[in-house]
Design a protein around this nucleic acid. Structure first.
Length: 820
RNA sequence: GCGAGAGUGGCGGAAUUGGCAGACGCGCCGGCCUUAGGAGCCGGUGCCUUCGGGCGUGGGGGUUCGAAUCCCCCCUCUCGCACCA
């Protein structure tokens, strides 16, 4: 074998081979056990970045490894191709989003190919393709039929820069800013489409348990859904037939309620103050709160300046019958619970703060251990014993919660209640580049779903003004807007909002199973064959957005009887971020390392290996050019020794050194395999490097030139072992050495247990925990023999200075510790 | 504030049923080869040292024959959530 390691042409050659041989195209009738390996499909920005490289390298190593292990691996790829960047580019450059997206998809696809990642490209999906979004719309109709898609007016998050509404999940950070552009989000009352994800809140919690996901992601979802258990009950209003229903998690503190609070948006605010002296002040206060941005409203929380106003009305504490004042305050949210609370200053920090500020009474009803009737310096929020609570005195908080709830139930004024922090998913977007919502509004028939036969509702490609106006650009397109009512045939207009792109990505993994199906969303048998995804790989930034929505969709689709699984992703792996100079890579910081440069300067194999070697895949890492160079060095060392440039191979009998290097090869394989199974690619690669170093020692030793048979035996396991990580160079060497077939078609090499076993090991001799000697011993040495050897050691005798050891601890065969 | 995770050489990182700290790579130092070396090969590289050894895993205590690893207190950093009653 001769020739220079020309990685550019070698990599191109094998990439062509994988494409033409279709060896990673896979079908349901494949007799091998299935493995669904999936990377989160990318937004086609046009340029592959290092985060993609990391993601797809991890996915590709797994695909190739599992294939060698005898699985039929389904590994598809596609495009999350609706969304704002394409539309923003259109606003700037005038290029149509569809044209823009198609170009970028082609560009990214070729870059992914140059990474050496292999996919079943027949299954490619693209969310902006009508053949795909037809079925997104179809799902919307199914949701609508079952009442899971509904329209409602609600105060919603509005991004003034993107000129669209946002889901709660898309409002981030302590200031409440837009996930995309970082602009402070405001509130608006708009009629919008929602998906009723809250109906699945409990299931989304329950089914989390069995998933093999990072604990941290599970915890984030659990916190986001935010289940709490408590009690709802009515407060009577003297002089009114209305009652105010409140929610609390602390019914045990109900005797300490000294006032009640309504959210400013609460529907009873107006009626209760109408015609009273407080009416004008209350109206002014409510207006002030409502016009405030989220930032302003939150900033008042910071200072704990709880803004509120007395309504002049009262309510009755149902526990003790006392009349207490009714306030309106902006620390009570209309969107949680009932939008009204009972306030217990003694046992709630916020109520305590508010009571202090407004001079309201603070009455202790839960006694902490050691409390003897003094006033509180701060709210006591822990559990304790009920006091000043009539017949309930002496009960613990836990007992009290149950007892008070039952008491309210028996009086018909309340009941136990579970609440969730999670709110329904707002999916309307006032933008063009998204999936049209298949709904028609008819003056006579109202809100009418577009019949299935009329799908897809196509996005018009002509005559659209993209400039954001706060209304969907589709509203200006007469050809799109005006239509006929599917029910009565009369004039009607279309819904002009489009769907959140997270809707598109909530089911793409199902479509991959049967992506070319023209007649139905997918064939159930095919989906049931491949699902669930056995390994899902992607960034942790999707921990609550995409991953929660996809779980919700899967459950709904299962309830429709379309699939058998209720959870889409059995195992999840979240990779760390790639940084540079301690910061996030970004164009504005000018610290972007571009993959395409490295395909030319170091090769895809070196780039892949660097990503795998640099640290645990779940950790962030800092990009370092020197590191990639080291990987190229390793690959070139492999190339040279295989190429016969290090030493010439000879035919000769096997000696002890030959046997030893073969043993080491098997030990390396054993460790490498275990590491790869545990996603510990960094230590797997390190073991391979260590072995190559030994191989160089063996090949260059003075005693004898390298033996051909040994070398070939080693390469026949070393090359397949490395094939998933550095697929091009291993394929090329395999071919050049004249081995049979393709290295990627090899079964995973097996470890020879006889070669791995060690007969002799180095025993460490410690005195008082410090290493004093090392002695080579048989690996099946007994404790007694170890003890005798240790005590006979010169070094140990010196250290003991003639004293008898008090204790000798032997841990065969590796360690013995002598205690003087 | 609440929740989760992390702190190991000049750098990235190894080592977890408690058992040789620093594998592997980068960088650095030296040697060989060479007309030359920003190539390659070989060797060295935690700190201190009177060359015997001593000290070392954010800091302080503890358990243990033995602790990077387990327990307690403290410090620092990262991520997520943040009036959810």
């Amino acid at each position: 074998m001769t020739g220079k390691y020309d990685f550019v042409s070698i990599e191109e050659k094998w990439q062509r081979h994988w494409a033409e041989s279709r060896m990673y195209y896979i079908d349901e009738d494949d007799p091998r056990p299935k493995f669904y390996d999936l990377c989160m499909y990318p937004y086609p920005s046009g340029d592959l970045h290092m985060g993609h490289v990391r993601n797809y390298t991890l996915g590709d190593v797994l695909c190739r490894y599992k294939t060698m292990r005898g699985f039929a691996v389904l590994s598809p790829m596609g495009w999350d191709s609706f969304g704002l960047p394409a539309e923003n580019a259109a606003i700037k450059t005038g290029i149509h989003p569809a044209t823009y997206s198609r170009e970028r998809i082609e560009s990214m696809k070729s870059q992914i190919r140059r990474l050496g990642a292999v996919y079943d490209w027949r299954r490619e999906v693209s969310s902006f393709d009508p053949a795909y979004y037809k079925w997104t719309q179809w799902l919307f109709l199914k949701f609508f039929e079952s009442g899971l898609a509904y329209r409602d007016t609600a105060p919603v998050n509005w991004c003034p820069s993107c000129q669209t509404v946002l889901a709660n999940e898309q409002v981030q950070g302590e200031d409440g800013v837009c996930e995309r552009c970082g602009t402070a989000v405001t509130k608006r009352d708009l009629e919008q489409w929602f998906f009723a994800i809250t109906r699945y809140a409990q299931q989304l919690i329950d089914d989390l348990e069995d998933l093999q996901w990072p604990e941290r992601v599970k915890t984030m979802q659990l916190n986001w859904i935010g289940r709490s258990q408590g009690c709802e009950f009515d407060l009577e209003i003297p002089g009114s037939s209305e009652v105010i229903r409140v929610y609390t998690t602390r019914p045990d503190t109900v005797f300490g309620v000294t006032y009640a609070v309504l959210a400013p948006e609460h529907p009873l605010v107006g009626p209760l103050v109408a015609g009273t002296s407080a009416e004008a002040d209350v109206a002014r206060f409510v207006e002030e709160v409502r016009s405030a941005t989220e930032v302003e409203r939150l900033s008042t929380q910071r200072s704990l300046d709880k803004r509120g106003i007395d309504t002049g009305r009262t309510v009755v504490n149902p526990a003790n019958g006392r009349e207490i004042p009714l306030y309106i305050a902006d620390y009570v949210l209309m969107t949680y619970g009932t939008g009204a609370i009972m306030a217990v200053p003694a046992h709630d920090e916020r109520d305590f703060e508010f009571a202090k500020l407004h001079g309201l009474p603070i009455e202790v009803v839960i006694a902490a251990g050691g409390w003897s009737g003094e006033n509180l310096e701060e709210a006591f929020t822990g559990p304790g014993t009920m006091v000043n609570s009539g017949e309930f005195d002496g009960l613990s908080s836990d007992e009290g919660k149950v007892a008070v709830t039952e008491w309210f139930e028996s009086r018909g004024i309340g009941a136990a209640k579970t609440n969730f922090r999670l709110r329904d998913w707002l999916i309307s977007r006032q933008r063009y580049w998204g999936c049209p919502i298949p709904i028609v509004y008819c003056d006579g028939c109202g809100t009418v779903p577009v019949p299935e036969a009329d799908l897809p509702v196509l996005l018009p490609e002509e005559g659209v003004e993209f400039k954001p106006t706060g209304e969907s650009p589709l509203a200006d397109n007469e050809g799109f807007l005006s239509t006929h009512c599917p029910t009565c045939g009369g004039r009607a207009r279309r819904e002009t909002d489009t769907m959140d792109t997270f809707v598109d990505s909530s089911w793409y993994f199902l479509r991959y199973c049967d992506s070319q199906n023209q007649d139905e969303i997918f064939e159930r048998a095919k989906v049931d064959h491949w699902m669930p995804v056995d390994q899902y790989i992607g960034g942790v930034e999707h921990a609550i957005l995409h991953l929660l929505y996809a779980r919700f969709f899967t459950k709904v689709i299962a309830d429709m009887g379309l699939v058998g699984v209720r959870e889409p992703f059995s195992r999840l792996f979240t990779q760390g971020m790639v940084r540079k100079d301690g910061q996030k890579m970004s164009k504005s910081l000018g610290n972007v390392a571009t993959p395409t440069e490295y395909f030319v300067s170091h090769g895809a194999d070196a780039l892949r290996l660097y990503n795998l070697f640099v640290g645990p895949p779940s950790d962030d890492f800092d990009w370092n050019d020197r590191g990639v160079e080291g990987m190229l060095r390793f690959i070139q060392r492999l190339w040279r020794i295989a190429n016969g440039e290090v030493a010439e191979l000879v035919e000769r009998d096997e000696d002890e050194a030959d046997l030893e290097i073969l043993r080491e090869a098997h030990r390396t394989l054993e460790k490498f395999t275990a590491d790869i199974e545990g996603f510990a690619y960094n230590t797997a690669a390190a073991a391979a490097m260590e072995f190559l170093n030994s191989l160089y020692q063996w090949a260059q030793r003075d005693q004898a030139p390298p033996r051909r048979a040994t070398f070939e035996a080693i390469m026949s396991i070393f090359l397949p072992m490395l094939a998933p990580m550095i697929p091009h160079v291993t394929a090329e060497i395999w071919e050049r050495l004249g081995f049979d077939g393709d290295v990627h078609s090899c079964p995973w090499p097996s470890v020879d247990p006889d070669l791995v076993r060690r007969d002799r090991v180095v025993m460490v001799v410690q005195v008082k925990g410090k290493v004093r000697d090392r002695i080579e011993v048989d690996s099946d040495i007994s404790e007694d023999a170890m003890r005798d050897l240790a005590l006979a050691s010169e070094k140990v005798r010196e250290e003991l200075g003639g004293l008898e050891p008090t204790r000798v601890i032997a841990r065969p065969p590796k360690l013995v510790n002598v205690v003087p």
